[in-house]
Amino acid sequence: MPDRNIDFGHYKARGELSSLAAARVLDTLAGGITSPVTTRRGLTARLRYMTRSEHARSLMASEGLNPSSETLAKWLDGTQQPKASNLTLIDRTYRRMRRHNVARYLLQRLNAGGGTRVEIHPADDTSVLERHRRRDKQMRKINIRKWDHIVKAWADGAWEKGTKAALDDVWVDKLRDELGSDWGAYEYTKSLGFNA
């Protein structure tokens, strides 16, 4: 069984780690507030979302965003604008909370009706020399039935903080199940989509 790429891009192939691409697609499926955090509307909406309830507030604190109630009030009524570093923290915390909250519903939707079809395109090797190219690789459509582990690893958010291994492991496990020994061509991908 082939193992992971040791030095992807050594021969000038291009692509995105497919587990991260999948996480990105899950993010778009999770949806959320589209106004950017730098706008007044986007900022207020995010802060409201995160301070709706006692539970939400404690979750926000556990994610590392813990402003005093005065600061929060000033942010909300617009008398004080958060620092740039706080803005990124607010945005990141909001996305994590959103993932956490949406995970259960999203999992249901992905698992419904016998799973979700994933279309995965192999890494782009047009600039790789012919002799180093992998032959016979093409777009594949695979059906993933059980999304529990993937969604859990995605909602956990560790992949965003720099520890990609957990998400990558569950994703590669799925790829290996579906694609067999061919999975290595799809560890990095050019494009990936779910029809969920």
């Binding site: 279309e119 395109h121 782009d124 777009m139 459509k141 494009s191 990936l192 989509g193 029809n195």
Partner: peptide, 9 residues
């Protein structure tokens, strides 16, 4: 031809 639903854009 199969329909490619999510190509690289």
């Amino acid at each position: 031809y199969d329909i490619v639903a999510f190509p690289f854009l």
